[in-house]
Simulated assay, not measured.
Amino acid sequence: MKLSVHSLALLALGCFSPASFAVDVPGSHDLERVPRLPDAQIVDYRQTSDLERVYPMGSIRRISGQLRFDGQVEARGNVTSVTYELPPEHSATQAFTAAREALQKQGAELLFWCQARDCGESSLWANEVFGNSKLYGADNGQAYLLLRLAPPADNTLIALYGITRGNRKAYLHVEQFESSAALGELLPTSATLLRQLKDTGVLDLPRLAGEPDDTWLRLLSRALNLDTGLRVSIAGPQAETWRQALIDQGVRAARMEAARGDVAGLHLELLR
């Protein structure tokens, strides 16, 4: 049976999915430090100079008409944001994890990480924090992460927000903030340290190469005591000193063991 030219053309078109014709919004491009998943499409791209920006470091909610969260980073600087719509074969979780892992390999430090309902209301993240209604979806289908890049780029923050909408479309929003002034010391939350340890199996803190620091002792002891069923090994130049200091802070001795290893700073590893 011979097909007409018209039929052949229709057959050829049918071999391509709609995603094959997807194009990025004009003038957009990927951020240098965050790789794009295959076939993801840029559906929103914005650049703003000299903007006052607030990044939450806690679950967000609205009380008496005002946004509330436990902590925040607030600074003025330049913002570039990229929103990807993901192809059906990739989930928001996959894109979020790939971006996080790529940034951590570059030495970025996690400041705040929440998932699902622990983040608060997706509508507030979408409309109030990022100003992008495309990011509104189910509360249990979201994840947010705030990272600080390693020196000498440590006045730059990266925010990641992954979401699956009710129509099952998945998005990853990536925002790069370059502060116009030094950000100073920024500490992660204890819950973020615990989430990182449980999700990745390790917690690398290269800056903690010396004697135990009181602030970090409090953060780590709180993190470990948020889940008293976890056991960890501790490695580093001062591993045994840190272990004893954590015991003094109320972490049970049986949950920690000092490990050998030539590592910089402090290295905690989850014992399965």
Rank of each mutant, 00 (worst) to 15 (best):
M1C: 06
M1F: 12
L3H: 09
V5N: 10
L8M: 12
L8A: 13
L8Y: 01
L13I: 04
G14W: 01
G14S: 11
G14F: 06
F16D: 02
A19H: 02
S20H: 14
S20L: 05
F21Y: 10
A22G: 11
D24I: 00
S28E: 01
V34G: 07
R36M: 05
L37D: 12
A40I: 06
Q41E: 11
V43T: 10
T48C: 13
T48G: 04
L51E: 14
P56Y: 11
M57S: 10
G58N: 03
G71M: 03
G71V: 00
S81R: 10
S81P: 10
T83D: 11
Y84I: 08
E85H: 03
L86F: 06
P88M: 12
S91V: 08
T97A: 12
T97L: 12
A98C: 01
E101W: 00
Q104S: 02
Q104M: 12
G107H: 10
E109N: 08
L110D: 02
L111C: 08
L111A: 07
Q115P: 00
A116Y: 01
A116R: 05
R117P: 01
A126K: 07
A126S: 10
E128P: 04
E128F: 01
V129I: 15
K134P: 02
A143L: 01
L145G: 04
L146W: 09
R148S: 06
L149K: 14
A153Q: 15
A159I: 10
R165P: 10
H173T: 03
V174I: 14
Q176H: 03
F177R: 08
E178S: 12
S180I: 01
S180Y: 09
A181N: 07
E185I: 02
L186I: 15
L187C: 01
P188M: 04
A191I: 05
L193M: 12
Q196Y: 00
V202A: 06
L203I: 09
L205K: 14
P206A: 05
R218E: 10
L220A: 12
L220W: 10
R222I: 11
A223D: 02
L226E: 11
G229R: 11
R231G: 09
A235Q: 11
A235S: 14
P237V: 07
Q238N: 04
R243L: 08
L246E: 08
I247C: 06
I247F: 09
V251M: 08
E257V: 15
A264Y: 06
E269D: 02
